[in-house]
Amino acid sequence: MKKTIKALAYLILLGMVSCIEPYEKTFKTSSNIIIVEGLITNDYATTPILLKESVPSETGSSRLLPIKGAVVNLLVNGESKIPLNEKTEGEYYLDPTFKGEIGKKYKLQFTTADGNMYESTEEALPVAVGIKKVSHQLVDKLITDAQGNGRAGYKLFVDVDDPASQANQYMWGWTIYERQSVCKTCTGSYYYTTPAPLGSCVEDAILKRYNNIFDYNCTGNCWDIVRSSDLFISRDEFYNGGTLKSQYVGKIPVYTFSGALVEMSQYSISRTAYDFINLSLQQGVQTGGLADTPPAQLTGNIKCLTDPSINTSGFFVVAGKSKFKYWLDKADAYEAKVSPLGLFGGRELKLEPAGPNTTRPPLAPCVNSLTRTNQQPEGWIN
């Protein structure tokens, strides 16, 4: 049976429109596949461990379904167990105050609702290597938006002084903080501040008929948080002990002309993690998480203890993380008169028009989440 694995690039996650093109590959398999994506570092654990199952169908396509109701634990040094909690279907979180410790060994263990037990290989958390410098280059039509239009974007580069004392493998990611003025969007409805504290969108027959959209400004400060979805890696076999200069590590759309804060993350990863990601890139996986790789080809470091015949894929990564904060003022984009993508995936802002009722349009609160915060990011320049 053929099944099509579709990996959609995502910007972890909710409500954001990806500007990265999806890919599609076809593999021959007739089995369900358990897929795992996880990352433990010496930084706070804010992102979830993802558990999914790839389920083939008679039509030749496949579906990636969340694995619900699993019992998930992080095993530390083969002794203590730290439980994870399922907040959203298939997404399992550590306590947000948790940080991995350099030198300690970590293993992921979980039991699914059908009683099958799984575990990753054990990996020690390596020493993080710091970023020496971050730079950028404005490129026209670097990004393709949801409508297929080319948009300007920034290529990001890093310099790294590579330690000569050991072999090193690197993975990079970025987080960008953009000032957001809109905290609520209603489709076919008006926004009301009741029930408190978040309010709600109340359907209106005329607005619904024309699929009308209204945006509502924030009651106070608010920032959108966008995370990278591309995979960029390197190993130091050709520059061990030297300086890695102008390593390309990602691209960011020009969302607005306002300045933004970029936080570059550099991960020191194991050779096995590097080899898995490198193989996925060679097989055509350019974007998305490790839980969206073609599972028929990539076995990763997860195995089923109770039934070895069950296919598994994905990778549980244990990495040393260093961060570098970089202010992106975007003056070059303004001078070049590029067309910014905006913070709505290319859609233009549409505020509810003011009328004789002075209580409208109301303001909406900035709701903290993985993709938004009302707390000024450290390093922000007003």
Results as ranks from 00 to 15, higher is better:
residue 4 T to K: 13
residue 6 K to A: 09
residue 17 V to T: 15
residue 24 E to Y: 09
residue 24 E to G: 05
residue 39 L to H: 07
residue 44 Y to I: 11
residue 50 L to W: 08
residue 53 E to P: 03
residue 55 V to C: 02
residue 56 P to M: 00
residue 62 S to D: 13
residue 63 R to V: 09
residue 69 G to T: 06
residue 86 E to P: 08
residue 98 F to V: 00
residue 104 K to P: 01
residue 111 T to L: 02
residue 112 T to D: 03
residue 113 A to R: 13
residue 116 N to I: 09
residue 118 Y to D: 07
residue 122 E to F: 08
residue 126 P to T: 00
residue 126 P to C: 04
residue 131 I to G: 07
residue 131 I to E: 06
residue 131 I to K: 05
residue 131 I to V: 15
residue 136 H to A: 10
residue 137 Q to C: 07
residue 137 Q to K: 15
residue 138 L to F: 10
residue 141 K to F: 04
residue 147 Q to S: 11
residue 152 A to G: 15
residue 156 L to C: 06
residue 162 D to A: 04
residue 166 Q to V: 07
residue 171 M to N: 07
residue 172 W to K: 01
residue 174 W to D: 09
residue 183 C to D: 00
residue 185 T to I: 11
residue 193 T to S: 11
residue 195 P to A: 05
residue 196 A to D: 02
residue 208 K to T: 13
residue 208 K to S: 14
residue 212 N to H: 11
residue 224 D to F: 03
residue 228 S to W: 07
residue 229 S to F: 04
residue 241 G to E: 08
residue 268 S to M: 02
residue 275 D to R: 09
residue 280 S to T: 13
residue 280 S to W: 02
residue 280 S to F: 02
residue 281 L to D: 02
residue 286 Q to V: 08
residue 288 G to W: 08
residue 297 Q to A: 08
residue 302 I to T: 15
residue 303 K to I: 11
residue 303 K to F: 13
residue 305 L to N: 04
residue 316 F to D: 05
residue 316 F to I: 03
residue 320 G to I: 01
residue 322 S to H: 02
residue 332 D to C: 03
residue 338 V to T: 13
residue 340 P to R: 06
residue 347 R to V: 04
residue 353 P to K: 04
residue 353 P to M: 03
residue 354 A to F: 14
residue 362 P to N: 05
residue 367 V to R: 10
residue 368 N to A: 12
residue 373 T to K: 00
residue 379 G to S: 05
